[in-house]
């Protein structure tokens, strides 16, 4: 597998940005300054980044309530995201949406989503646009093992096949839908579900960037080539609760610690690229330092940014009135 230096550095930077962004939110949320609730993507970085490494700004993705990572992987500006999470006028959604609704349609990011199973049907539509507009783009639905049990998701698998859409259904399987284990809540297997709808199935270790990159490349190539949809089943683990404040008593002691110790995508990435001499450690260190100051700056800017004004309340309910 050949990966360009550019993709490697960009991907590492994305993963590091997601990690630092989320770890920082974990700390900042606990101060009570961030309104509402946030769901963190720590531990799952390689999935969003490995998939989005194959996409351009004109490909479309739909995300979930755990959407910060997908946003960053698709190139949404960190400063605008942070401001949004702080409810500021300068946020990517002008403080109207918050953590669960970050979107940037100019970058093909169709939004994080507060509704489990909200994304897959939308991605059928996005893929239909790409197909009928013949723009050679693909549409990617990210969703969890929990959402894989929503009727809307299962209907979308069917529809995408019926219409032979350029869509990829990425099941980010972290083993838990909220506080309930996938081993209880998911009947059968994702593989058999894909087979049931007649679409090719790919799976990979979602904590290994290179595995995701390679497998996602195959799934996306299939969809882009006009052969219809594919399913990509990514096995991974989330390091924080379903939402911030979740004590995770439904997980055994040490489960997360083990994941952090053995399956840290960033640590493993660094190890691999130095072993095979793909990137120099100094380059990675430089990225780390860069990202750290970028996140620091984003938090400072968000806290200092103006709040929405009264008139913003009535703005943008419709395009025209």
């Amino acid at each position: 597998m050949q990966i360009s230096r550019d993709i490697l550095t960009r991907s590492y930077r994305s993963m590091r940005t997601i990690r630092d962004f989320e770890e920082r939110l974990h700390v900042e949320f606990a101060t009570g300054e961030i309104p509402g609730f946030v769901h963190l993507y720590c531990g799952e970085e390689a999935s969003g980044v490995g998939v989005c490494a194959h996409l351009t700004d004109t490909d479309t993705i739909a995300s979930t309530h755990r959407g910060h990572g997908h946003c960053i992987a698709k190139g949404v500006a960190v400063e605008g995201m942070m401001a949004e999470i702080y409810g500021r006028q300068t946020g990517v959604c002008h403080g109207k949406g918050g953590s669960m609704h970050i979107a940037d349609l100019s970058l093909g990011m169709l939004g994080a989503n507060g509704i489990v199973g909200g994304g897959p049907p939308l991605i059928c539509g996005a893929a239909l646009s790409h197909k009928l507009l013949k723009d050679n783009n693909v549409a990617i639905a990210f969703y969890g093992d929990g959402a894989s049990n929503e009727g809307s998701t299962l209907e979308s698998l069917n529809l995408a096949t019926v219409w032979q859409l350029p869509a990829v259904f990425v099941v980010e399987d972290n083993g838990y839908g909220e506080a309930t284990g996938a081993s209880y809540a998911c009947a059968g297997t994702q593989k058999d579900r894909a087979a049931g709808f007649g679409m090719p199935y790919f799976e990979c270790d979602g904590t290994d960037f290179f595995a995701v990159y390679k497998t996602a490349g195959e799934a996306i190539a299939h969809a882009r080539s006009g052969k219809g949809p594919a399913m990509l089943h990514v096995h991974l683990s989330r390091w924080y609760g379903h939402f911030e404040g979740d004590a995770m008593s439904y997980r055994a002691d040490g489960e997360v610690a083990k994941q952090r110790a053995e399956h840290d995508c960033l640590v493993n990435f660094r190890k691999y690229v130095s072993e095979v001499s793909l990137l120099e450690t100094s380059v990675l260190d430089e990225i780390d330092a860069d990202v750290k100051s970028e996140i620091d700056a984003a938090v400072i800017a968000a806290k200092a940014a103006p709040l929405p004004e009264d008139a913003d309340l009535m703005r943008d309910v419709y395009v025209s009135y």
Partner: peptide, 11 residues
Amino acid sequence: ITMPKFGLAMT
């Protein structure tokens, strides 16, 4: 170190 906020309902 301040009293953290656990979840959306906590005041």
